[in-house]
Design a protein around this nucleic acid. Structure first.
Lengths: 337, 337
DNA sequence: TTGTAGGCGTTATCAT
DNA sequence: ATGATAACGCCTACAA
């Protein structure tokens, strides 16, 4: 495994041309197929290519065409199941097309996020889909990207940027939660809690402010998008002496942490505390109790991304529309009253 | 957002050379910095580059150097939390180095897996880390990759291949599980169950056969690596009339499904059924009850990958070692007897 | 120390 | 319809 250093298959279009007894230009034409040529020659070239195991060198092609049929997806945190699911869905929605999706993880770090963007740009990707990790700090990465290639902000956005955004209507989602909670009024008179996901991302900020708009009397506490923050928040709530209530969370990962801690500390969900999440991650239906949550329309969102990317490939204009309506999914952790 | 089609920043080394009043060779030297040159000139070039917003075109560099400082990671299923966690860890372990990690999802499809490999190869990646989706069907992808670039099989392997493998000692892990179960002998005389993850991947096959080796009397049933198979398996076990037992699973995702279904159907874990997983995915500690499982030494494994990649970058010989010992993590779903 | 020039593999333009 | 050839942006002998 030592000596081989050649990049691609090692056999170039030149080799195929020699083998088939044609010019290198003919080889290129036969393979890209977008030019008229005799079927006989075409077949001969294709056979030679097959025989030699030729494989087009995408680097050479990219250098010449200045296009790569590739776009990059930057994910803030692959260990967050909602994001890894998004990545899988985006990737899947391009399975049929010629476009390749390259994924990079920013690992909750704006420095690595920027680096991922630069790497994609240097690689001449045709477009970038960025889930901005931080509302402020991700601005540089987003601007760098959008200055050079068609760029989409996905799921979160940098305020004031004019880069097209695809995501869900967080305010509407929280309105659904608030309405759901309101129906519990007489059953759970105690207390409504909101456990936020921080103010440093647009989704965190939007969900917090929307919920507080609809339920200003709620007991509010803020943290970050993670299981452990949910656990900590539940511990806080119990240590403050609360015995019953409804706990709405900015994300499923938080809600799962909350629910987990409540049960560990001997409380019952939903009898003592009702818990509501946001996102509808894949595992939320198998949590115990199963999680009432707001489902983001992931399929619609990824398909919108596909359309925007395709449009930009065809150098059409961007379609800036991209705010999708989520839906409430009622499960055991906060059943219908 | 329409007219711009240039790939990278549009400004090339040539432009920088003009701006700085030097030759294009000097620009290249100033930026790669691996050549002696006067500080004054170097500073001037760097200033010009900065002023023009120059950014090296990695495509041009790759074509010339036949190296990209990049390797590709092919993941069978990003929605499986164990795999997405692996991806994050691999990516993280290269954060400090110059190497970029590109991730592609095969989405449980060998066709897309092969396509991802070809795409990486065409992009001249310096190496490929492949988690083979299928023990047989992934052979083509693996061979294509290893023929051209240094390649590592990660977590799963294609039998009979001489491509270096990094993964965990599944047999040893199952031995730990069997020993743990054996201690429960008198407490749970009823029945030992094993819920497999299929025979089409090396991990599925190894874990099944190892467990059956240590506990040949176990009640065996086989499926796939997924929550829903775990739920189905639990339903089966209950419908067969079993009231108590110990259920060992080939993966945490299966165990979480099993546990979920048992509880949904009114059984108690661990009182009625004890449940044991494998992998120690991030969420297993917050399941209810928390999951007893076998922890894969992810940090060691990803660091081994880092070493192998680095060695291959330095064109040293591969270090074929790569079987790591997992450890039993006892939690609530199957506590110490 | 710095500049000149050739070529990496591909596609597109121009002849033929 | 096919072939020769010139770029694309970069790096690196080699020359100065």
């Amino acid at each position: 495994m030592g000596i081989r250093t050649e990049g691609s298959s090692g056999v170039t279009g030149h080799d195929v041309a020699l083998h088939a007894g044609v010019s290198i230009a003919t080889v290129s034409r036969a393979l890209s197929g977008n030019r008229q040529m005799s079927d006989e020659l075409k077949a001969r070239v294709l056979d030679s290519a097959e025989a030699l195991g030729y494989q087009v060198n995408l680097v050479g092609r990219a250098l010449r065409k200045k296009l790569t049929s590739t776009f990059g997806l930057v994910i803030p945190d692959l260990e967050n199941p909602f994001f890894s699911s998004l990545a899988q869905n985006v990737s899947r929605s391009f399975a049929q097309s010629e476009v390749d999706v390259l994924i990079a993880s920013a690992d909750n770090d704006v420095v690595r996020e920027l680096r991922a963007v630069q790497s994609f740009l240097g690689r001449q990707v045709d477009g970038i889909v960025l889930i901005p990790h931080d509302e402020k700090e991700s601005r540089t990465a987003l601007e760098n990207a959008s200055r050079l290639v068609p760029t989409i902000q996905f799921d979160r956005f940098v305020p004031g940027s004019d880069v097209p955004f695809v995501g869900c209507d967080n305010r509407f989602g929280m309105k659904l939660v608030a309405e759901h909670i309101a129906k519990h009024g007489q059953v759970f008179p105690e207390k409504v809690f909101f456990v936020g996901g921080g103010q440093s991302s647009s989704s965190g900020r939007e969900r917090s402010s929307a919920f507080m708009e609809f339920m200003p009397e709620a007991n509010f506490r803020d943290g970050s998008f993670g299981f452990s923050w949910g656990q900590e928040a539940a511990r806080q709530i119990l240590s403050e002496g609360h015995q019953k209530g409804i706990i709405a969370c900015a994300a499923d990962v938080i809600a799962l942490g909350v629910s987990s801690m409540l049960i560990s500390m001997g409380r019952s969900v939903p009898e003592d505390f009702r818990v509501i999440g946001f996102d509808d991650v894949g595992v939320s239906f198998l949590a115990h109790p199963t999680l009432t949550t707001v489902r983001q329309p992931v399929a619609e969102m990824t398909s919108a991304i596909g359309q925007i990317i395709s449009a930009s490939q065809a150098s059409e204009e961007f379609r800036p529309l991209g705010l999708f309506r989520p839906a409430l999914v009622v499960r055991e952790s906060s059943p219908k009253p």
